[in-house]
């Protein structure tokens, strides 16, 4: 599977805006489908994009998401201005969440976002600073041959 040229998309995500939640992830998914990438890879990338987008909406003030597809990989970057993650080790634990009760009642904040990303990504790197923001980079490698 070879993508001839790199493909870039940048999307804005507004913190606390549950009305348009999921639109950045949907656009990333549609782009990857247009590029005819394998459905399993599109699924993994969609899950990562959705969780990253929801994290910005749940926790941050504002953020941006970017997608870059090159011949060997899909890279999704989400960075935000927000509270940052005080304890990254704990944040990576399944079930650990700092989301409010109200957000949990909507079915978010189950403490599965980052663990889901980790499972679906080939590489996940997170840089975060308390009271400044967080940058999450997700890499998924494309299969070297068909299938």
């Amino acid at each position: 599977m070879i993508i001839a040229n790199s493909y870039d998309v940048t999307l804005s995500v507004a913190g606390h805006d549950f009305v348009t939640a999921g639109e950045a992830a949907s656009q990333i998914k549609r782009t990857l489908e247009t590029l005819n990438l394998p459905p399993k890879l599109v699924r993994r990338a969609s899950i990562c994009a959705y969780e990253a987008e929801m994290n910005i909406i749940i926790h941050a003030c504002r953020g941006q998401m970017g997608l870059r597809v090159t011949e060997d990989k899909v890279a999704i970057v989400a960075h935000d201005e927000g509270p940052g993650i005080a304890n990254l080790d704990r944040a990576m634990e399944e079930g650990y969440s700092t989301a409010s009760e109200e957000i949990r009642e909507m079915g978010f904040g189950a403490g599965m976002g980052l663990p889901n990303m980790k499972k679906c990504a080939d590489k996940l790197s997170i840089k975060t600073k308390v009271n400044e923001g967080t940058r999450v980079e997700i890499i998924i490698y494309l299969p070297t041959s068909e299938g």
Binding site: F18, V19, A21, G22, E23, A25, S26, K29, R43, S46, I47, Y50, M106, G107, F108
Partner: peptide, 15 residues
């Protein structure tokens, strides 16, 4: 599900 808010639609569409 018991969730009825609009975010369930994005989940269903993505999957």
């Amino acid at each position: 599900t018991l969730q009825a808010h609009q975010n369930i639609v994005a989940v269903a569409a993505l999957l």
